[in-house]
Design a protein around this nucleic acid. Sequence first.
RNA 1: GCCCGGGUGGCGGAAUGGCAGACGCUGAGGACUUAAAAUCCUCCGGGGAUUUUUCCUCAUGUGGGUUCGACUCCCACCCCGGGCACCA
Length: 899
Amino acid sequence: MGDYKPQEIEAKWQKRWAEHRVFETEADVEGRQPSDKTEEKKTQDPPFAKGAKGRPPEKKPKYYVLEMLPYPSGTMHMGHMRNYTIGDVVARVKRMRGFNVLHPMGWDAFGLPAENAAIKNHTHPRVWTNKNIGEFQRTLRRFGFSYDWRREISTCEPEYYRWNQWFFLRMLERGIAYKKKSRVNWCPKCCTVLANEQVVNGGFCWRHEDTRVEAREIEQWFLKTTAYSEQLLEDLKQLEGGWPDRVIAMQRNWIGKSTGAKVLFEVAADGAQPGIAVSQEKIEIFTTRIDTIYGASAIILAPNHPLVARLIAGTAGQAAAEKKLAELKTSSVKTEDIATAEKDGFFTGRYAVNPFNGEKVPIWVGNFVLLEYGTGAIMAVPAHDERDFEFASKFGLPIPVVVSKEKSLNTEGTEKEHRGHGDNKPAQPFTEYGYSVNSGAYSGLKSEDAIEKMASDAEAKGFGKKETIFRLRDWGISRQRYWGTPIPVIYCEKDGMVPVPDKDLPVLLPANPKLTGEGESPLATDPEFVNVKCPKCGGPARRESDTMDTFVDSSWYFYRYCDPHNDKQPFDPAKAGYWFPIDQYIGGITHAILHLLYSRFWCKVMRDLGLVRHSEPIARLFTQGMVQKGGVAMSKSRGNVVGAEEMAQKYGADTGRLYTLFAAPPEKDLEWSEESIDGAWRFLNRVYRVVDKHAGEVASRKERFNAEGTESAEFAEKRTQDQGAKSAPGAPTEKERELLRKAHQALKRVTQDFEGRWHFNSAIAQIMELVNAIYAAEPLEEGVRPAVQKEVLELVTLMLAPMTPHLAEELWEMLGHKDGLWTVEWPAINEELAKEDEVEIPVQVNGKLRGRVKVAAGATQDEVMQLAAADAGVAGHLNGKAIRKVIFVADKMLNLVVG
RNA sequence: GCCCGGGUGGCGGAAUGGCAGACGCUGAGGACUUAAAAUCCUCCGGGGAUUUUUCCUCAUGUGGGUUCGACUCCCACCCCGGGCACCA
């Protein structure tokens, strides 16, 4: 009898899995095996079991399961492990069920932390990154995750990032990549651009915490995600059911579709100050509530709206207005407290004409109007908008009411009412739909109808049109950093911007950059990198020194796994066509918006390039909960990290895996508890011991049992005599029936938990119950033969296999199997064995539990009724009263309604 | 403010309209042991009655509703977590 020694067992089986190449994908394209290594595989693979698992690879259904690739920083903690354990269980279950499974892993290896670490330690980002990759890889192997390591990718390698450049060039050709001026964070002390993460404490430089970050406008590269706004929104419908609702909601929110109308207001020529001819100026506003336009009491422009300067020029209050404008512009730098900032603004001194009724409305500038959204100008309708109401209240603008909750006969109010002055000023804005009032010909219409009619009329008369706008912005991909993909363009004095020809890819990062964290971007200061010849004319030219946002790397990496060593194209479309879409993607909720949105965008671009046929790369998404300690997520800065290596050393990988699966359902946050890990450890020991004992008994009693654990006829007869059983020697005893029933009931529920809801915690609970039952049925002499016990122990082993794979292999071997567990299929449920012979039925009187009766399974209502009536507890509550109604659910319950 | 989650014993959690608290942790008691560890067994929501046994009653954030029956479905509210937010 031995002890459970996870360190030995885990090393042993990891070695065997590698030798037998168990986790390597069997086919890449339908009907075709991977060209490499096919012959070796055939000779090394053990024969397949029967059923789906035994089919030739090209006949198996494919299954692509993927966990979000990690950024290799520091060491792996149990938060990482939880993510990969969930994915590994799924991968292993699918393999057992006969799927051709793709389960790869790689490294999101570019990024700022590597560069920062390099600056600090005077080393190269590659050194730091590769060291971390080495550690991460070792830890993943230590946990026995079933990755096909032949497909490992690292995004910082030229073999990978050259395809980022290739995609960029294709997008450039199609006008999807473009350059424009944009605001960046600038630290005046470092004299460099800061990433958003480097801006700390609400606007200060991370290295100079006394220095406020400034906004600077510089030329930057963008990808036109907005070209796909409508599709990105529309295709979310395809994801319903496969993605968590909240992620879909977050994406929808982020894209922010808003339907409304744009309306042109002419600036009045006879403004407050005559003499300045601005009458040709027009202000375009966007509104979702064109039906409220009769209630507009001002036009409000964003402080940085291009028209503002021209409007205030020459007015009486020009000097004061300019001063105020400068104030508004600087105070709008902070992004965090914009939402809570008080409304502020000023009157420009000019008026605009409402195209619907010819009324003059004052033109204001307001701090709450955003240039980036809509047209950067709004019409203020204080009676029907919260913000406008607040603004009008502060500055004394009229608040005319033009929408009424009820349809009133008197649709034209008094002049006083209309102006919204004095007693009739509403106390609150009414922002819902209702009926138009005080709105000329439109009065009396329902808001929905008024919106439709007024927008059409505006369009017909040429001063407006229906319009849909989006909140989604184009994706700024320029980074003034070293450790990223160089953007492949060249600026020639003669030819202007010239794309790097495909044949010159990859544009390699210079090997030995000067990294200081200060001054110009690192690539810009490297003369060898920057000074090049123009690919067109051969004249002197300068290379682009920006690198790409690392979100570019992670937007398409999962396609590369299909064909990781292709040096002709990013991937073979046939291979991607076979594997995609990803059947199951698993990762943290933190990436619910950007990573997934960019990935969806990239897929649509690739579709338009003809590389793929699908529009959505990910069919199903699962967002697992965080692993917390002390109520907060594990992080190095908080010092509450439980390292994965530490865990493996102390308890072994299987205990770590089991614990993270058992402690909480996978979508919920998990609070780390050292005591509960002991529970998982104890359980695995318990399983090991019972199998060990079983094996020992079979070996030590050869005279009674044969090698398969079957009892000799002589002993069987003796035993049945002892027990006084009437059944034949070979028939199962009552105890055996009970054990087999429990086993198959557990199998049924575990199968469901794996296939459907992923309630791994209750699956484990089922297995624990079964193991408890095995213990309760001990010792063997009292009615459970080794053959039966073996059958049950095999089921336990197979059910544990996806979760604690090393231990399961070991147990399988201890149970006398020569071939590895990886050759075995998921067991079939035996419904006949799972069936109960006898059930206990609760009996309710008026819905309250009053008694229980034992009946044979499938007993009829009458049979149950007879027994129930005889039950003392039930009878007491019936009290001779008439039974008005009987509700009977076979094998479930009986409810008697008395009155 | 809007949009998603969630609220069940001392703790993690089970139960998707049918016996609330499976399974595990902690705790208490017992067996084994010179002893400890490990292991095995028993008990463990509150109140009450009865005292070996059992029975009654309350209880799944709060208040209503639907139903023979509700942790589960519907309405309103409270609290916690997350996302978005002067988005016109």
